[in-house]
Design a protein around this nucleic acid. Sequence first.
RNA 1: GCCGCCUUAGCUCAGUUGGUUAGAGCGCCAGAUUGUGGCUCUGGAGGUCCUCGGUUCGAGCCCGAGAGGUGGUACCA
Length: 491
Amino acid sequence: MTDETAPLRPEARSPRGFIDRRARDLVAERQILTAVSAVYERYGFEALDTGAFEYADALGKFLPDADRPNEGVFALQDDDEQWMALRYDLTAPLARFAAQNWETLPKPFRRYAFGPVWRNEKPGPGRFREFTQCDADTVGSARPEADAEIIAMAAEGLAAAGLPAGSAVIRINNRKLLNGLLATAGVSDERQKLGVLRAVDKLDRLGPDGVRLLLGEGRKDESGAFTKGAGLNAAVAEAVLAFTAAGGGDRAGVLARLADIIGGSAEGDAGLAELAAIDGALKSLGVAEDQAVFDPAVVRGLEYYTGAVFEAELLLETTDEKGQPVRFGSIGGGGRYDDLVARFTGQPVPATGFSFGVSRLAAALRAAGRDLAAETRGPVVVIVFSQDDMAHYFAAAAELRAVGLAAEVYLGSSGMKAQMKYADRRRAPAAVILGGDEIAAGTVTIKDLDLGRELAAGISDNSQWREQRPGQINCPRSELVATVAKIVRGV
RNA sequence: GCCGCCUUAGCUCAGUUGGUUAGAGCGCCAGAUUGUGGCUCUGGAGGUCCUCGGUUCGAGCCCGAGAGGUGGUACCA
């Protein structure tokens, strides 16, 4: 102890892209998951939970390598030197699970899952490195009806979660259509096809003119940065643009228009047939035309999908704190991925699924005015006066709990004024005041904190405030539970 | 990943041409009014001026690098 050196303290901060969520956020997300799970189970999907980590090779192409050991995923080496990584979605673990248990699973295998996923990438507003996903998939059915059912279930799940009717639409496309179109035009290079998908994906942001540039040589944006294009010739680029513009109106109408544009290629016809079957099934399932539309502009992810793709889009337009209009856009999506399980088994296994971001949906519900979380209340707080009377306080709290009311005895060391502040901050509906006077008289004072707050707003004079004790009731001790219940439950 | 902007108290922000002890409002804590969350009054705590390096007699302020945030853009299983 010679020199007084500053103690080396860690800085209290959360890692980039990770957030703490308190009760008000968690309540909303739990409600969504409960409602959606009930819908999914009604459709015959079983719950499945897998571990947070997978061996890195099971996650696909994001293998840690010497150059970029953590690209995309959070990976670490186990003590046996095997690379393992936190899952980045729920589909890859499902594919692994299905492959691992294929011999014993009832097929088709239908399951839903929810839980945190992790992505090691740059976080942004509303975009984190850990977030909760909810996902449902059917593995082992190639029928378009399996896709239709996933779509119907997604629509019903979103509604059950609280999205008002008409505030979301599921857009449906099929990869085989564009593939067929490109095949007819003689485009077979995979990199070129990928470039086309990327270009089309930007349609809503850049418009047809921007996409036309990206389909061709490339595009220079306002900052001068150049994005290389797909290199299609002008005629093919126009055909692609005409294809993407064929949406709008009812599903049968879109199909008819697409048939004209795609015409003839084997793959395109297969895609059209699948969409027609999906349309038929959606009708039988009672999915309205405005809930699920065919839209050839939907791209949804890249390579991975092999057939139908879908995207759930929120139509709500709201304003943020600064009055700026906010569009939520895509809230979830999915599609058919017939090759994912085959990575493990070598056997082709058809699969289709849908997943959405839970906190994103919660944010949308909040914007739609369905913010149940704002109403979350704290427990009734029993005020502590004297160490000697602790038994009275605990007895009161126990009585309240026995009838299902949340209650707690204040366990800090501050005075009554601070305790009232504490109750206020906990959003307690009521405070129970059992001081020496009340105990001696066999009574209890109960303060309705909401009513008190309301009444206090009209009082500016201190003596008046003192006399009125706004929102307070003094009643016999035996009426404690009934009186508090009336305040909390309103009956 | 690339480009721009930003970073001072818990929050929102002032801070002069580089000059003594870095401020305000709100919030927080304590006290008075009162064994009572509001109002009013009194007092108090709270700072690595993002970090490291440089220039200077002297840096919150100037220069460089880095980190974090943010807005674009790219990527997005």
